[in-house]
């Protein structure tokens, strides 16, 4: 890692609020509410989707991050390539760090019988079926994918402006409609069902990685020609 890439990582590190405090505050407040609910219900176990908040946060974070830090870094004479590399290092590190915490919480949740009130917030059927390493891969891969999706959207905006975003939105709407048509009328659903049937969350997580890499590559191509 050259010194400029390191500086970009350290620039990101200065924003601990956006990278760490905020996502955890949002998710943990959802957790606390669920904990109170589970405590008062008493009867059955409570499985919630509150965990999704951190993944959605990553999408938003990817969008906001390019918007705020790209013009800032370029204004400080940083190369586009170094900005990109530094941001990628940061997001991989954050994804891994967040995943480790999530795995730990998932383990504690399971071991403590859902925090003694049968609340399943981090330890969710299918998602956390595998061993610790597999769970880590699932969490990290989804976090990474969500962030990079946001990063790519924001890079598109940086490169082609609003028109670029509109064009992409319309194109994906058309493609999405055609795809749904294919799924229903051309019976693609059978193939899709067969593809996912029996695959663990771990395998799906692995399959998501190349998609993330493509998103990352697209972002780089866009940022390389972006101006401030």
């Amino acid at each position: 890692m050259n010194s400029s890439v390191k500086s970009v990582v350290r620039m990101h590190m200065k924003d601990r609020l956006s990278w760490f405090y905020l996502p955890w505050c949002i998710m943990l407040s959802s957790f606390v509410i669920n904990l109170i609910l589970a405590g008062t219900m008493q009867e059955e176990q409570l499985v919630t989707g509150g965990l999704a908040s951190i993944f959605i946060y990553m999408l938003v974070s990817g969008i906001v991050s390019v918007q705020h830090t790209f013009p800032f870094a370029l204004g400080f004479s940083v190369r586009r390539r170094d900005y990109y590399s530094g941001s990628m290092v940061m997001i991989v590190a954050v994804s891994l760090f967040t995943s480790i915490l999530l795995c730990l919480l998932s383990y504690i949740e399971d071991a403590s019988g859902g925090w003694a009130v049968e609340l399943y917030f981090f330890h969710i059927p299918y998602i956390t079926d595998g061993n610790a390493l597999q769970q880590l891969v699932v969490f990290a891969s989804v976090l990474l994918f969500m962030y990079l999706l946001g990063f790519a959207i924001s890079s598109l905006n940086r490169r082609f402006g609003k028109m670029g975003l509109y064009t992409a939105a319309i194109a994906s709407l058309v493609l999405g409609t055609l795809f749904v048509y294919g799924v229903i009328y051309l019976e693609w659903w059978k193939g899709i069902f067969d593809f996912f049937d029996g695959r663990s969350a771990f395998e799906v997580g692995l399959l998501l990685l190349p998609v993330s890499i493509v998103l990352s590559g697209i972002s780089y191509a866009l940022l390389r020609r972006s101006t401030v």
Binding site: R10, H68, T69
Partner: peptide, 21 residues
């Protein structure tokens, strides 16, 4: 027209400049 990240304080911006230059 220089833009700064919303969450950055003066000290963060100067700290970043110190690393970059």
């Amino acid at each position: 027209s220089q833009k700064y990240p919303d969450t950055f304080r003066v000290t963060d911006v100067l700290g970043t400049a110190a690393m970059m230059f």
